[in-house]
C-alpha cells in the first residue's frame, strides 16, 4: 500500500516538474506559490513513507568522533546547548549523539547553555537520553547540568577564569562546591574537550573567540548548516572537527551505529532526515534549471 502511495506521489512530482519544464520553453515564469507547493510535497512524502539513505563519515566529522573515542575514560567533556527550539530539528540530533557517545565512553559530561532556551533543552536531553538509556549514571557524579546564564560571550569571558563567579549552583539549585563532578574544576581550562552545538549567536564562533583560543582548550562542535561554511576557517587549527547541518549529524550517527552494538537500534533523526533532504534538493535544482530555461527562451523570443 505504502509503495503505491510512494510511487504515485513521486510520479506527481516528476510529471509536475516535466510539465513546468516544457512550459518554460515558451519563456513563461513559474509563480512562487507553485514552487512553495512543490517544496512542501517533496518534504512531506519521504517523511510519510520513511525513505532513508546511507551515509559515510567525512574526515571533518570523523575528527570529533575519534577525539571522543580516544580520550581516556573519565575525561571531562562540556556540551554547550547554544540553540533554541526553532533550530532544534537540525542540531538536536548532534547534541543527542554527543551526549550518548560521551556517556557510553564513560566520560564526565557537563551541560550548559549560552542560550536561555538551551537550559531547558539540556534538561530535556537528560530526561530523554541519560535517565532511560544510562540508568547507572548519577547526576552530580557522571554528569551535571549547570544551565544558562545571561551575558552571551560575556559568560565565557568569566568562566574561562572561574566557573563559580558565574555559576553558584546547577539547574536544580545544588551548590557546585558540594558535587563530586566539580571537585577539581575551576574554570573552562579544566575541560578536556568542549562540544558546542549551535548555529546562531552566541555559538561556536564565540566559543572559539572567548574560550578555545584564549584558553587553549580543544573545541569541536555541531552547527546549523547555515553557519558551517563560516566555521571552516577555524578547522582544523581551532576546531578539531565540525558537524555541518543534518548531514554531519547523520554521518556521526552512522559512525556510532557502526562501532557500538548498543546503538544499533538508537533513534537516528539525522539519518531519517536525509530522505526529505535529497528530494527537496532535487526539486530546488529542477527549479533552477527551469528558471534558466525560461530566462533563455524569453530572451530569444525578444530577439
Amino acid at each position: 500500500m505504502s509503495d503505491i502511495g510512494l510511487i504515485l506521489s513521486i510520479g506527481v512530482i516528476v510529471v509536475g516538474l516535466l510539465w513546468l519544464t516544457i512550459r518554460s520553453l515558451t519563456g513563461r515564469e513559474v509563480e512562487r506559490r507553485i514552487i512553495f507547493l512543490f517544496i512542501g510535497i517533496s518534504v512531506a512524502i519521504p517523511l510519510l513513507f520513511n525513505i532513508t539513505v546511507s551515509e559515510k563519515a567525512t574526515p571533518i566529522v570523523k575528527g570529533i568522533y575519534d577525539k571522543v573515542e580516544n580520550l581516556p575514560s573519565g575525561s571531562k567533556i562540556l556540551i554547550s546547548f547554544d540553540y533554541g527550539p526553532s533550530m532544534a530539528p537540525e542540531v538536536e540530533p548532534m547534541s543527542d549523539a554527543f551526549l550518548r557517545h560521551a556517556l557510553a565512553k564513560g566520560h564526565k559530561v557537563f551541560i550548559m547553555g549560552l542560550w536561555a532556551t538551551g537550559q531547558s533543552l539540556g534538561a530535556a536531553a537528560v530526561d530523554k537520553i541519560v535517565k532511560p538509556e544510562f540508568p547507572d549514571k548519577v547526576d552530580g557524579v557522571d554528569y551535571i547540568n549547570i544551565g544558562y546564564k545571561a551575558g552571551n560571550q560575556g559568560v565565557l569571558n568569566v568562566i574561562i577564569t572561574d566557573f563559580r563567579k558565574m555559576y553558584a549552583t546547577d539547574v536544580n539549585g545544588v551548590d557546585l562546591d558540594s558535587v563530586e563532578i566539580f571537585e577539581n574544576i575551576r574554570s573552562l581550562k579544566d575541560m578536556d574537550l568542549i562540544l558546542c552545538v549551535g548555529g546562531g549567536f552566541p555559538g561556536i564562533k564565540e566559543w572559539v573567540l572567548f574560550a578555545a583560543d584564549p584558553g587553549n582548550i580543544p573545541l569541536a562542535g555541531g552547527s546549523a548548516a547555515v553557519a558551517t561554511p563560516l566555521l571552516y576557517p577555524y578547522y582544523p587549527k581551532q576546531l578539531i572537527g565540525l558537524l555541518g547541518g543534518i548531514k554531519g549529524a547523520a554521518e556521526y550517527e552512522s559512525e556510532m551505529k557502526k562501532n557500538y552494538p548498543r546503538f544499533a537500534d538508537m533513534p537516528t533523526p539525522g539519518l531519517n532526515m536525509m530522505g526529505p533532504q535529497t528530494l527537496a534538493h532535487m526539486v530546488v535544482m529542477a527549479f533552477i534549471v527551469i528558471g534558466n530555461l525560461s530566462f533563455f527562451f524569453a530572451k530569444r523570443r525578444k530577439k
Binding site: V30, R32, I35, F36, F38, I39, G40, V43, A280, V283, V284, F287, I288, I290, G291, N292
Partner: peptide, 12 residues
C-alpha cells in the same frame, strides 16, 4: 525552506 527555493529560482 520555501523562500530558499523561490529565491534560487528567481536569482540563479
Amino acid at each position: 525552506a520555501f523562500y530558499v527555493a523561490s529565491a534560487s529560482y528567481r536569482a540563479f
